[in-house]
Design a protein around this nucleic acid. Structure first.
Length: 236
DNA sequence: AACGAGTGCAACCGCAGGGCG
DNA sequence: CCGCCCTGCGGTTGCACTCGT
């Protein structure tokens, strides 16, 4: 799939490497004027000799407002570890739960963190190898959300109980796009938090297929009675 | 002061998946 | 249904900076 790479077109004319301040300004102006998205148009609009992927990455990881730079706080690290236990290397999802942090940010930090951890565990020669492996293994039993297509009304259970209109489809990925909608932004968190009849409704309407049901009830005991999301995370 | 090793982070690459004609 | 195009993600690379010798 060559078109998605920065090799597109006459690659020789495309700039690579570190961004200059001038390029940053051009990109900022462009995004402010035309908004985010349509990245294939951005290089042309901004007058940049950069591929669209490079533009997008620069904006998302560096130029976008509200991006937090600097060290991760203890709370952030704590949450990151818990989320990583839960989600695995889903950096974008993890970053979505850490305000102001980008997936690249999180990924880089994690790699660094893991490297230092690995370093220290190697130092810990008293621990038997098997024990270390056991611990590591248990930390990598990861819940991977399955991409799934389902009906909008299913999600809007508060408004549309019992609706059978399957005309408009919405995907899991859409739901994971945090900023698009407050209703759906924290769908999984909300779902897990709400031990109420709406969730029962989702179960009854087949929102979870058998495999997922098995996952939630057997290998992944989400909440005991009265347990909150914070309580749940605190288990890790 | 010089140099090599280690570290952090920005940027790149390849791929998967969704939308649309 | 199929193929093309676009977007976004995760893994990897490369470079600049720091630190120890």
């Amino acid at each position: 799939m060559q078109s998605s790479n920065c090799v597109e077109g006459s690659s020789s004319s495309l700039r690579k490497g570190a961004w200059s301040q001038h390029e940053d300004e051009l990109l900022k102006d462009c995004v402010q004027r035309y908004g985010e998205g349509k990245w294939h148009l951005v290089p042309q609009r901004a007058g940049l000799k950069r591929c669209r992927k490079s533009c997008r990455l620069r904006w998302l990881n560096y130029l976008k407002p509200n991006i937090k730079k600097g060290d991760f706080s203890e709370d952030e690290v704590d949450l990151m570890i818990k989320l990583h236990n839960l989600l695995g290397n889903r950096w974008s999802l993890i970053a979505g739960r850490l305000p102001g942090r980008t997936s690249n940010n999180v990924k880089n930090y994690w790699n660094t963190y893991m490297r230092s951890k690995e370093h220290s565990s190697k130092k810990d020669k008293n621990k038997p190898k098997e024990e270390i492996e056991k611990v590591e293994k248990s930390h990598h039993e990861v819940i991977k959300p399955q991409p799934r297509t389902f009906t909008k009304p299913l999600l809007e259970v508060n408004k549309f109980h019992g609706s059978n209109d399957n005309s408009s489809k919405v995907t899991m990925n859409e739901l994971c796009e945090g900023e698009s909608s407050s209703r759906t932004s924290n769908w999984w968190e909300a779902f897990l938090l709400d031990d109420n009849e709406d969730n029962n409704h989702l179960l009854q309407t087949g929102f979870w297929d058998e495999q997922q049901l098995n996952m939630t009830t057997n290998s992944f005991d989400f909440f005991s009675e009265g347990q909150t999301w914070s309580d749940f995370l605190a288990q890790f």
